[in-house]
């Protein structure tokens, strides 16, 4: 093999390395753009809560779960993922308004996604998982548990009911619940 061939090999290797690095850089730039311009972060609250006390905690006691419009107008839904159901099973949220979903688990690892949206998070015992989103599609959306949580995992599924903003009417305590169908 001649010296010239060897140099040609090195040159093409370098060319290719540049292409590879450029391809990866484009993807990174897209992620950075989304983070800055669209405030897109993965759900990463690092907010601790004792799972052994979850049902006694002020925020995640049974009667405090579901959708609530806070005094400052912020719309928050609090949902517990437990073996083998979401509590409450059905949550009402308005379309086209920023909403915050807060999840926690008293027992084992769960996870969830809401079909057709970018809502997707793990629910790890010991932490509050928080998702911020704006729901665009109205109707009953599936909210299945997507992480193995025991033998009843397959049946663990909830509903996010997205209603047009005008039909979203909180009660005097700021709470909204699914009407029975």
């Amino acid at each position: 093999m001649s010296e010239a061939d060897e140099r040609a090999i090195v040159r093409s290797e370098i060319r290719w390395a540049v292409v590879a690095i450029a391809a990866v850089s484009v993807i990174m730039l897209a992620v950075i753009f989304a983070a800055i311009a669209m405030h897109i972060n993965p759900p990463s609250n690092v907010e601790r809560i004792n799972p052994q006390d979850l049902h006694l905690s002020a925020e995640f006691t049974e009667a405090n779960l579901g959708t609530k419009v806070e005094a400052n107008g912020q719309i928050t839904a609090r949902i517990v993922a437990t073996q083998f159901a979401f509590v409450p099973r059905c949550v009402v949220l308005p379309a086209d308004r920023p909403v915050t979903l807060r999840f926690s688990s008293p027992d084992v690892i769960h996870g969830l996604l809401v079909s057709g949206t970018n809502v997707n998070t793990m629910v790890v015992p010991g932490y509050v998982s928080q998702v911020h989103t704006v729901l665009r599609k109205t109707g009953d959306l599936l909210m299945p548990c997507h992480e193995y949580c025991g033998l009843g995992h397959s049946e663990m599924s909830g509903t996010i009911r997205v209603v047009p903003s005008a039909q979203f009417r909180p009660g005097p305590d700021g709470r909204v619940a699914c009407a029975a169908k």
């Binding site: 972060n41 993965p42 990463s44 907010e47 998070t121 793990m122 790890v124 932490y127 928080q130």
Partner: peptide, 14 residues
């Protein structure tokens, strides 16, 4: 594998 996990911050995920 933990991007959607609540126990880690955005900074270290990045």
């Amino acid at each position: 594998h933990l991007f959607m996990d609540p126990e880690h911050s955005t900074g270290f995920k990045f």
